[in-house]
Each structure stands twice: as structure tokens, then as C-alpha cells.
Amino acid sequence: MVSLRGVDKYFGELHVLKHIDLTVQASEVVVVVGPSGSGKSTLCRSINRLESIDAGEIRVDGEPLPVEGPALAALRADVGMVFQSFNLFAHRTVLENVTLAPINVRRVPKVDARREAMELLDRVGIADKAGHLPAQLSGGQQQRAAIARALAMRPKVMLFDEPTSALDPEMVGEVLDVMASLAAEGMTMIVVTHEMGFARRAADRVVFMDQGQIVEEAAPDQFFDAPGSERARSFLASVLSH
């Protein structure tokens, strides 16, 4: 579904992605973990070209990423993205946030878009907030609305860029539950997160990144119980010890 081949990315002098190879199968849930600055967010953002890459190739559903223009917009419509800072449209209600892209990109009739949006909001448990503005919601509710907004486009793959990192601890669970149910339904997902519990519970595969490289790829049990690399061991020791 998603494949990266020899991807390199620089921020000026900084080599943030070093020759990344990664393939994600349909319905697979890949959780990307690693220390801050390891390049995992950049990796996630490069898959829908919010970050351009300097070398290599990224394919989504077999198609190479187009350059800027209508073709790229069409590809992005098929790739759902959930951001750390939610990024709900501040001037639109929750319902309008969810219907905006289906109506304007997919040309779904308004009535149908609203009905589908309400079903999605119901599914993420915030149907009662449909008429509210984003600022009137808690962080967890905003992130669930953002997930509904992405799902409304019926994406082939969902990217999560640290979706719980900006949340108060008591709201992390409600967002992870929605993500876990998505994973259980067979959505193809690439999740960048610091939530090791979620990685263990929902991932098919854990990818460990450090200093712009994929250091280790393994099934969650293997990764957490018997990490193969020294860097992964010290990372896990530091995040699991507190």
C-alpha cells in the first residue's frame, strides 16, 4: 500500500532521513517509535508530501507521489492524516470540519456528506458536539473530530503524527481506543507515537528509528521483549522506566 525506497531528506545540513526503505501492506498497522529528532514525524509527513524528499521514491497504492498540483491533491485525498495539534478548522463547526473535504473534493452532495459525517462523529463518540466550534471541545474530543474528518474522505491509508502527544494524560485513552478500533477493522495505518502500550496492543509491526535511520523492524512482542539493537534497548529502557 505504501512503499519508500531509498528515501533521503535534508533540512539544510541536517540529514533527517537516511536512505529509508519501508513497505507497508494493506491493512497493516505500523507503529513508528524512536527518540525526538529521530526523523519519524518527517517520515510520516513525507508520505503525503507535506515534506518533499531529496532522493528516493515513495509510492502509495503503487503510484509514485506526484509533484505539486491536482494529481498531488488527489493523492492526498486518499491518504488520511491526523496531526499532533489537531488542526481543526477554527472557523467551522465540528460537522463542517468533517464535511468540508467530501463536499469540495469528492463532490459528495451536502445531505449525504452530513449524514456520513454524523455517522463518523457518532462512531468516535462526539455526535453531540457536531454543532460546536473546535475551541469548545476538549483536546481528546478535538483529536477524535480530526480522525472523523480524515475518515470522511474514505482514505486508503491513515497517517497519525504523534496524535496523543498534545493531549492531557486522561484524554489519551479515548483517542487510542478510536485508533485501536480502526486498526481492528483493517485500516492501513502508519502511527508515529510515544505510546508504547498502543504499539504493543495494536501494531502488526514496530519500526524503531534513530538519527534518521530505521534501526530495527519487528513484531511488537519481539521488539519490546527482546529488542535486537543496543539503541532500541536503551531507548526502551528510558521510556519504560518511568
Binding site: 507535506l50 491533491a73 492526498r76 488520511g80 488542526n87 480524515a150
Partner: peptide
């Protein structure tokens, strides 16, 4: 970014 990511 959010609007571009949605395909607008």
C-alpha cells in the same frame, strides 16, 4: 497543512 492533507 490540514486542508492540503485532505486533498483541497
Amino acid at each position: 497543512e490540514a486542508s492540503r492533507a485532505l486533498g483541497l
